[in-house]
């Protein structure tokens, strides 16, 4: 059976508080904090992008896996903020990780679910026996338009997962995907910021696909909510994943470990993958884990994983997600944030 042999995550150290963004636009921070359950979010520096986040997460994953990078036969990065429009992020990332040149590389894109897409395909190649190891990464440095609700959530971070067939830290019991044409959120070529369909993004988009994919994989595996130790759902804000989890019968104790959004923000393609990494940081042998992503457009990928007795041996080999979220942080003002995110126009 195929599964995970290594995982790693990265969250930038810069942060901006909800109060600071609210102050800029004359909004009441308490309304936002209560409504969206967001306290602060990560902010990438000038020198951090999808590629550097992928390298940091990928290095941690290789350290935990303890494998020769040359044996990684496929590397896929899912993101909606690839630094180049033409030239795959995977080329730079593989070179930095010591992977290749005998490697298959592609960048994936599907709004916030590009990361789990990369994982889905990496898993499939290992199951098919085409490659010995395959790496799937979800990473983003997402942008929200100034004074848009997304500005409170769009953040930076990511996670990398190495799939293999032996010495697993978690078996993949099942994978499932659910997709339909839903215009809830988009960005046309050449536009700087994405647009969204306001209230249309909730029920007909997020909840429809997250619930359908989760119910689909539960039916396929014959498992029930109470069988799981942990579950994580895509986190566009604090409220949606908790609400989806409860509708599926999960309790708060199963959801809070992977619920990293209140202090990380929404890392788009890195969102549910980083939540999964936070779960793997603490999971015990035989724990069942459910992850369901969501990407606007729209679709969801679900995986059911089962931790093995090898997992506790690798957890401490690289930084945990919580150590990065709660560790050294540097808070920026809105002015600095606008500078870092290149929202200011300056003379060349």
């Amino acid at each position: 059976m195929a599964g995970l042999v290594g995982y790693g995550a990265y969250v930038p150290r810069k942060r901006i508080r909800t109060e600071e963004i609210a102050r800029q636009w004359g909004k009441n921070p308490e309304t936002i904090k209560r409504g969206l359950l967001l306290q602060e979010k990560s902010v990438p520096g000038f020198d951090e992008d999808t590629i550097t986040i992928s390298v940091a997460a990928g290095r941690a994953a290789l350290t935990r896996a303890g494998i020769d990078p040359q044996k990684v036969g496929a590397l896929y990065i899912g993101s909606e903020s690839h630094p180049y429009a033409v030239k795959p992020s995977g080329t730079v990332t593989a070179e930095a990780l010591g992977i290749g040149p005998e490697v298959h590389i592609a960048d994936f894109e599907f709004a916030c679910k590009a990361g789990t897409e990369a994982m889905f395909v990496a898993l499939g190649l290992v199951e098919a026996g085409r490659v010995e190891y395959a790496m799937g990464i979800g990473a983003d440095t997402s942008q929200g338009a100034p004074d848009d609700a997304l500005e409170f959530s769009a953040s930076a971070g990511g996670a990398a997962f190495i799939f293999g067939a032996d010495d697993l830290i978690a078996e993949v019991i099942e994978a499932y995907s659910y997709t339909s044409d839903t215009p809830d959120f988009w960005r046309r070529e050449g536009e700087f910021y994405p647009r969204h369909g306001g209230r249309f993004t909730g029920e007909p988009a997020y909840f429809k696909h997250v619930l359908a994919a989760s119910r689909g994989i539960l039916e396929k595996t014959g498992l029930k909510a109470e069988d799981f130790a942990y579950a994580v759902f895509h986190m566009p804000n604090g409220k949606f994943p908790m609400s989806a989890g409860k509708q599926l019968g999960f309790k708060i104790e199963q959801l809070e470990t992977g619920w990293v959004v209140p202090t990380m923000g929404n890392t788009y393609s890195g969102s549910s993958p980083t939540g999964l990494a936070a779960i793997l940081d603490v999971a015990k042998p035989n724990d069942l884990i459910l992850i369901t992503s969501f990407g606007s457009g729209a679709g969801s990928d679900s995986f059911v994983l089962k931790a093995t007795k090898r997992l506790p041996k690798v957890q401490g080999l690289a930084p945990t997600v919580r150590s990065m979220l709660d560790g050294p942080r540097h808070y920026v003002t809105y002015g600095e944030y606008a500078k870092f995110r290149e929202k200011m126009i300056v003379n060349e």
């Binding site: 020198d47 992008d49 590629i51 940091a56 630094p83 180049y84 930095a96 060349e348």
Partner: peptide, 17 residues
Amino acid sequence: LEFRLIRKEGKGGILCY
């Protein structure tokens, strides 16, 4: 020592890591 973007070769050039 962390892997970072060092500089951009102008507005349309390559990214140097």
